[in-house]
Design a protein around this nucleic acid. Sequence first.
DNA 1: GGTTTTTGGTATCGACTCGATACTTGTAAC
DNA 2: GTTACAAGTATCGAGTCGATACCAAAAACC
Lengths: 186, 186
Amino acid sequence: MSHENILELFERLTLLEKANERAIAQAHSLQAVQLVALHYLARCNRFSDTPAAVTEYLSATKGTVSQSLIQLEKKGMVTKVQDPEDKRVSHLKLTSLGRSLVKQTNQLALLDQALGGLDCEEKAALESLLRKTLIELQNTHKHAMFGPCSQCKHLQKSKGGHLCGLTKEPLYESDLVQICREYTHP
Amino acid sequence: MSHENILELFERLTLLEKANERAIAQAHSLQAVQLVALHYLARCNRFSDTPAAVTEYLSATKGTVSQSLIQLEKKGMVTKVQDPEDKRVSHLKLTSLGRSLVKQTNQLALLDQALGGLDCEEKAALESLLRKTLIELQNTHKHAMFGPCSQCKHLQKSKGGHLCGLTKEPLYESDLVQICREYTHP
DNA sequence: GGTTTTTGGTATCGACTCGATACTTGTAAC
DNA sequence: GTTACAAGTATCGAGTCGATACCAAAAACC
């Protein structure tokens, strides 16, 4: 009748996953937060690769995130590129070292391995249930959701391609699958 | 085809929930970890209310957990009671202050609110999928699982009641719904 | 029965996170 | 042009975390 069981399961999964994340990060001389940020940067689009976006994604404060990003830069995982239009913002690009680290650690998530035990139908069901929960959560609170442009409310078709209704910028194929900080459910 | 979407959704939910946890904890002058520990202690059985069990649950090191528990004790949320049989172990009992805090913060989980948007069938489906995932995870790695005695492999019936096959101790009604560190899936 | 090993728990140290505040610089609003 | 605001950095104190060392009680061993 209540949600207690789900909450417990979720918390348990979360704790195990978190511990695993820490272990993996440590194996590469990184902090857990830094690894999460790195994975985020590897799959966000070019509107969402700024320190501010990472801050929003991690739900942390900009001071903290700034420091973590400086660490990542020191370790040669990312480089900062100043935005040509707005000189205040910088874009974070993964170096080849950063990209290879992401690749190495991609399949190490405990969850990823555990999900191998589900068949396709179950995975689809789980995905849609989780998505529904997340959307519900976004409705009650006003948090950024960070989804792919391809499923976003702001996606528009233009001659021969796509367009973001918010920024009016063209979206190419590669943009569509990446996640964006402005994602809104239709 | 792959699990990427599920992993993303899961990570997003986790990050939001974590941020929320921090905020709630801070509102009560606690650390997030301390609040999680407190909630754990509120629903574990009498075999699982020791510092070692909390350590296992949080997947942290005993040194760290020891400090967190000392903080909780200082703040009057829990009290330590030495085990009469094994003088090394201490049991952590919630004070009335601790219990009331747990009650206050119980319904504040973002997830809890978001799950309100699912109907009963969906919730049941989500629960069983998450459980299957967790069991799968336990099979590949050997982590403690922390489930309720009522669903445990070690549960045995005895004359007029139940019994834990591992410790041979009697289990009363109230024990059955609480979570135990020795939980094993049948 | 006495020695060794293991286990539960604490104490302490350094590296790091995190939040808060203050600050700089660039952009937008009026 | 002045003011407000936004992006990002710097810094400080409180606290987490992992590692190590340590103590005491229990268990295993001979």
